[in-house]
Simulated assay, not measured.
Amino acid sequence: MSETDLPKEHLDTVLETPEPIPSKPAKSRGNGLALLALLLGAAGVAVGGWGVWQLRNLQSGHQQQVGQLQDIDAQTQVLKQNQQLLATRLGTLPGADELEDRRRLVAQLQGDQQRLSERLETVLGASRQDWRLAEAEHLLRLASLRLSALQDINSASALVQGADEILREQDDPGAFAAREQLAKSLAALRSVEQPDRTGLFLQLGALRDQAITLTALAPEYEDKGGSLLGLTSPGDASDSHWAQWWDQISHYIRIDFSADKDIRPILAGQSLTQVRLALSLALEQAQWAALNGEAKVYSQALAEARNVLQSNFNQDNPQSKALDERLQALVNQPVSVVTPDLALSLSSLQAYLERRHAPAEKPAVQAKQEAPQ
């Protein structure tokens, strides 16, 4: 039913009677408005903070863009300077003709340098070969000197072998004759036995030390008859003046009417040192002769040493007997050799050196003769 259908009186009553307003809902509405205001304030603060943060981000981005723009500007300036420098250099570059001339000059210089290096290498190589050949000649001279002065077969063989090695390194057919003579000299040297002079010297030195210790002299004369020419009788006292005198003189004089062997002189008291000295000097002379290859002096010195030993020392003593046998064995040891002559090898090498230098000297002589006066 609508308002038009209500009775008029009832409608006026309704319009005239106001509805009461409750007090409690009004208080709740005020609290809601305060809460809404707080929420709106908080939202405003948040919006303001967010706006400040965005502003700062925008300022930072702007500063970065400004820095990048400055870097780009600096790079642009560097590029402009490089372009200007390049343009300046391009303006100073030579032309194609000048570049071609310079290329030909560089090629010519490189060729001259290469030819100079080859010539220098050739000259140095020839100098090295000449030095080596001169060394070979020096080795041969030294080998000849050692043979003539010291009779040193081993050292001479090593020196000749070294000279042959130098000629072999040359690989020159012209050195065939020189190498042939060197081979003959080497064969002659190797066929000669080198005497052990050092061994002989040491053995004789050992015998000298042994001779110093010899003390067994030749036995003295002993009168076993008891009297001499009837001057004394067996009944006389042994301590008589005549007996004492005869005992002293018997050391110097021997009278033996039935002697059937060689009687050697009696040594004086101080003669033991003299005999040792004589024997030592004879052995020392033999040592010198052994080192210097003097066969005659060596034999004479050993014969003198044996003579001193046999004449003054007791041959029945084992030490004297062993020393005499050792000296007899050393007498037969060789101390000198017949050395081959290296003159042919040296002359052959010198002839090769002359032939080697002759072609280099001949053009110089011809040029000097053909030069205008």
Rank of each mutant, 00 (worst) to 15 (best):
D12F: 12
T13D: 13
P20D: 14
P22I: 03
S23L: 11
S23R: 11
K24G: 09
K24P: 03
G30T: 10
L38T: 09
L40C: 08
V47I: 07
N57K: 10
L58R: 08
H62A: 15
Q63T: 14
Q68P: 02
N82F: 10
R89Q: 11
G91D: 10
L93G: 00
G95I: 03
L109F: 05
Q110S: 09
L116N: 02
E121R: 10
W131A: 15
H138F: 11
L140H: 03
L142C: 02
S144T: 03
L145A: 12
Q151I: 00
I153F: 01
D164A: 09
F176C: 03
L189R: 01
V192Y: 04
T198H: 08
L204V: 07
D209Q: 15
L214P: 02
L229M: 11
L231G: 05
D236A: 06
D239S: 14
D247V: 03
Q248R: 15
R254M: 04
R254I: 12
D256E: 14
S258P: 00
L267W: 03
A268K: 15
S271E: 15
A289P: 04
N292Y: 09
N292D: 06
A301E: 04
A303L: 14
N312Q: 13
N312V: 06
F313A: 01
N314D: 13
P318E: 14
Q319L: 07
L323V: 04
E325W: 03
Q328D: 08
A329E: 13
V337I: 11
P340V: 05
L344E: 10
S347G: 04
S347M: 06
Y352V: 00
A360R: 07
